[in-house]
Nucleic acid binder design. Structure first.
Lengths: 231, 231
DNA sequence: TAGATTGTTAATCGATTAACAATC
DNA sequence: TAGATTGTTAATCGATTAACAATC
């Protein structure tokens, strides 16, 4: 067996590639640029230039010293690396407020993701049309997955149902799950799960908000103490 | 001036506190437990026990050797640390699909966050009732912020408007922003921004999905090569 | 006392960053 | 050649984890 190519892109880098991708698309489409320096790209992406160069170096050496990176080529490389040259049809389970918003979210299709099926278990939701799709019963998951080649499952159910839906996804062979439900789901180790949790984001923000306010209060207190300074 | 207390909780720890909080609430409410060991809490939160103990040690030494942590007390400490004992009213700018879903999202109020105002700029949206609130024009932001003590701004607009909304938020003194728009916003350094980007999550998932599939394919290829092995 | 579990240390790992030789 | 910018090295920083003494 040939030696396995040791192309291990760090997680932190993978998480930044989509940000670079977006910046590059902006440069290409709206500003008609042909090349970009690590410095420019760093500014657009909100990181520093050394990080950009290091990140891009994991994809190979695609820049030109003294010139920068060819935007089109870099776009192609990042797109390929992220697997975006392939089609990954996605299904949403749970057609409540959030599920509906996700189903009709333009950003997905704009970035090449197709939501091809919606599932629920409530009689008054199954059969309804949402965002151009008829909501199916979760019991019909397997059939839809086989027919449509669905490879990404999106959980938009209440927390109580999340684990069961995750297991159903796993049972039908789905290996990538995006979980919007506010609960942890357990899956086998070969299944990729990413979690988006609105409450957690707000709670983290609360921490930093509290700190910001504490700093402002401390500064104010110091100001009051210091200003009427006796000679 | 007294020496500033050097209580610097690492970012990674702050991001995990809400997960512990949720697990502890589950233990307290649904299972009537009084104490919890780092081992148990780790299992619920999906991390390892050493990490739990290290994380909790930043809050102080609240455990009892040989026994574990008192759940009620730990709940109180984490809640306080995250700033959740305070009320942080939030406003949403952009009442499209996503904004509506967020406005009616039960999870926020369940976890102590109040959405107190909705803003848009479109005539046919302003004045509409969504989730029990009348949508206001963005021009009335300052008034509402002052009256309601709004401290968190949520951006749910299209990407093009995100920067302008962020600036309006900053102008009226908001120091914490949750950005759902798929674009980077620039704010002064004392403003806390967190970004939730649905497309980026899917793109990262795409990378790992591609890798998972490559591994499966390689395994299959090896199987085919190895099974009809000549002597 | 024996068993359980914390809190902390120290080793390790991974990510960030400045610096600069290589080179367009 | 002079100026610009990459790609990589090495230092540094922050996060993770195993191990275990402390102690309930």
């Amino acid at each position: 067996m040939a030696l396995m190519r040791t192309r291990t892109i760090p997680e932190a880098t993978v998480a930044r590639l989509p940000i670079y991708l977006r910046s590059l698309l902006d440069l290409a489409e709206n500003r008609g640029a042909m090349t970009v320096s690590s410095e420019q790209l760093a500014n657009l992406a909100g990181v520093n230039a050394a990080k950009v160069r290091k990140d891009l170096s994991y994809l190979g050496s695609y820049g030109t010293r003294g010139v920068g990176y060819d935007i089109e080529y870099l776009l192609y490389q990042i797109t390929r690396e992220l697997g975006l040259t392939q089609d990954w049809p996605a299904a949403i389970a749970g057609v409540g407020n959030l599920g509906r918003a996700l189903a009709s979210y333009k950003g997905f299709s704009e970035r090449g993701f197709r939501i091809t099926a919606l599932f629920d278990i409530l009689d008054d939701v199954v059969g309804e049309e949402v965002g151009g799709l008829i909501v199916k019963h979760l019991d019909d998951l397997k059939e839809a997955v086989n027919e449509q080649g669905i490879s990404i499952g999106i959980i938009a159910t209440p927390p109580m149902s999340a684990q069961e839906v995750a297991e159903r996804f796993v049972d039908v062979g789905i290996k990538s799950i995006l979980n919007f439900a506010p609960s942890v789901v357990n899956v086998p180790p070969d299944v990729n799960v990413r979690k988006v949790d609105l409450s957690i984001e707000l709670q983290i923000l609360s921490f930093y908000q509290q700190r910001t306010q504490a700093i402002a209060t401390a500064r104010e207190a110091n100001r009051r103490l210091n200003i009427p300074r006796p000679l």
